[in-house]
Design a binder for these strands. Structure first.
Lengths: 246, 246
DNA sequence: CGTTCTCTTGACCAGCATCAAAATTTGTGG
DNA sequence: CCACAAATTTTGATGCTGGTCAAGAGAACG
């Protein structure tokens, strides 16, 4: 028990005795491409950061001195438009890497939605490590390519699609189906508010709420609590997401 | 003159005597990171492909055996939704690299909008070349990162934005301001139809047409021909794109 | 010069935003 | 543990933006 308390920020790296070796996010993060034998090298550069809810990690326009690997919790990335509208550009979950785009300054502000932990690397250190360990550079390239494919897919999410389709597709895209993640199969946890989902999907929070109600009425999902949904009929949810008439 | 005729697909690589060395797209393409002295190595792998209008380059779901570098013309990338709606995910211009996302199969279908030329590389060859020439791998990583940043920016283009804002932002994003490109400053050439723009922006072709008319009425642009626009007031266009009230 | 394709403009309608208020949930202090 | 306050969500009423349907005007092509 005393052990557990010290380890409370569950996946933080470089914890006495534990570190990367017991990081729960490692299996599905970039670090997976570093073999166990070389973990010490990675750990020497990794610095755990614990974030409280609503705490800021990066600020749009600030120089990007670090890159990060999310190890626990959920974060939101967003930009502000001239007139104050907020566009949420991404939600970040354990295993996600922050800094793939590689610009000199951050394109988005990133904040914790709920208590979260990330692994921080000095950008220069990280680059040096990549030069030294080519498999890491290759892994980063592959991951950036995956992120690009996903970002292009998001274009399809926001284009010519109805509100109901967007919300259904959004629910599908959340971790929950992924067996490596924490959530039991079929359970979707909405760490973000309706307003944040709306700012991500280009809708209003009222429309998001109405869409969820309609999905409930259709029997596709059931609401366990405000933040917990159970996908009753994944097939139906997928059909709605794809725009099938019902 | 006889020389010009043989060279008509303007930027095709490996032309007798010319090749990459005189490729007009090279300055702003990935190949720029290969020094002149090593061009022969690149040219040995490059295979020029000439596409007629509406000819297909890749088909969604097909195995991705090649990667491409656009050297002339304009192409459209798109996906089809279940009910037949088309989502144009990207327009490709000279210098753009096709295959950054790196999946085993193509995520998008890509077709020429107008006569176009591309440089084709066997994916395996290209990977081997990257292993051999690290600066090329680094350049590819940087470019993929840039593409990712741009794709995330597109999220902001499609989110909570009015039709007029989208069209204005789209015009700004087209090559024309780029000094390295062919078009004279301030001239925007719309190689794509209104319908294609609509499928890119998530609008209908009527709305795109109406938005262009409104931009004309505002004095932001002038229409030289169906496919040629002149940006009269870049500042105004930018203001509209950012959502300032007028 | 006529056929076809694309673009433009108009009239009408639907989906989503906006405005508003009630219902739940969450947090706080007694 | 309960009660109150604050925040979030849900639901309702109404209006506007952009989609749909339709017709006419240019361009492009043979």
């Amino acid at each position: 028990m005393f052990e557990l308390k010290a380890a409370s920020p569950d996946c933080a790296a470089r914890r006495a005795g534990g570190g990367c070796a017991i990081c729960r996010a490692r299996p599905f993060s970039l670090c997976a491409s570093v073999p166990d034998a070389d973990l010490a090298q990675l750990e020497a550069l990794a610095e755990p950061v614990i974030l409280a809810a609503d705490q800021t990690l990066t600020r749009e326009g600030d120089p990007a001195a670090y890159v990060y690997n999310v190890t626990a919790g959920t974060l939101r990335a967003y930009r502000l438009l001239a007139d104050g509208r907020r566009q949420v550009t991404d939600f970040l979950f354990p295993g996600d890497f922050i800094g793939l785009a590689g610009g000199e300054v951050w394109a988005d502000s990133i904040e914790a939605i709920e208590p979260a932990t990330v692994c921080r690397f000095r950008r220069a250190d990280y680059r040096a490590l990549m030069t030294e360990r080519r498999e890491l550079e290759a892994a980063l390239l592959a991951r950036t390519g995956d992120a690009l494919a996903e970002a292009m897919g998001r274009h399809t999410l926001l284009g010519r699609r109805s509100a109901l389709e967007r919300v259904a597709a959004f629910l599908q895209s959340l971790p929950g189906s992924d067996p490596l993640r924490v959530e039991p199969a079929g359970i979707v946890r909405l760490a973000m508010t309706r307003g944040e989902v709306a700012d991500y999907l280009g809708l209003t929070l009222e429309t998001v709420s109405r869409s969820l109600s309609r999905l409930k009425a259709l029997g596709a999902i059931e609401q366990l609590s405000l933040t917990q949904l159970r996908v009753e009929r994944p097939d139906l949810l997928a059909a709605v997401a794809e725009g099938e008439r019902t």
